[in-house]
């Protein structure tokens, strides 16, 4: 595995938590984002994720650098899956270790917010009666917004 990666196979969160663990770490937070069956009353059959892979991995690594600057002492590993995902599959994993728990929670939540803002990954929802590429209609990544 790589510390920041896009994968097209099922994500094993344990690999990422083990990657960030070290003897000075007292806290590890692992966030996993899963395919949800129902969104706003519409039933999802499955999702399809697509990415601009090299740029997405570069942006994940940049987010990791931002986290290490903001919360010194954290260690981070992140992955996003692409391709077709079924209900409950893991789309994204964020593992953060820290000497103390506060930073592990804060940095982890920061990471998912940033991923949703700047990492070039796109989700298509496939329902019983249609499909659509999902994208926030108001918030765009800005150069230098870090």
């Amino acid at each position: 595995m790589k510390q920041f990666e896009l994968v097209d196979t099922p994500i094993d969160p344990q690999k990422y938590s083990e990657f960030v663990l070290h003897p000075a770490a007292g806290a590890v937070t692992v966030f996993t984002g899963h395919v949800r069956e129902w969104t706003h009353g519409v039933r999802t059959l499955y999702l399809s994720y697509e990415a601009y892979i090299p740029m997405a991995e570069k942006k994940l690594a940049e987010i990791g650098e931002e986290m290490e600057e903001k919360w010194p002492g954290v260690r981070v590993a992140m992955a996003h899956r692409i391709g077709e995902l079924k209900i409950s599959d893991i789309a994204v994993v964020i593992a953060v270790s820290s000497p103390h728990r506060k930073a592990a929670y804060e940095a982890n939540e920061y990471a998912i917010e940033r991923i949703k803002e700047v990492v070039p990954i796109w989700k298509k929802e496939i329902w019983e009666d249609g499909e659509e590429w999902i994208g926030a209609q108001k918030k765009y990544p800005e150069k230098g917004s870090r």
Binding site: A51, I112, I115, K116, P120, I121, G135, A136, Y140
Partner: peptide, 10 residues
């Protein structure tokens, strides 16, 4: 170059 429509990862 790449055209980047609104992203929706996560």
């Amino acid at each position: 170059c790449a055209f980047i429509p609104p992203v929706s990862g996560g």
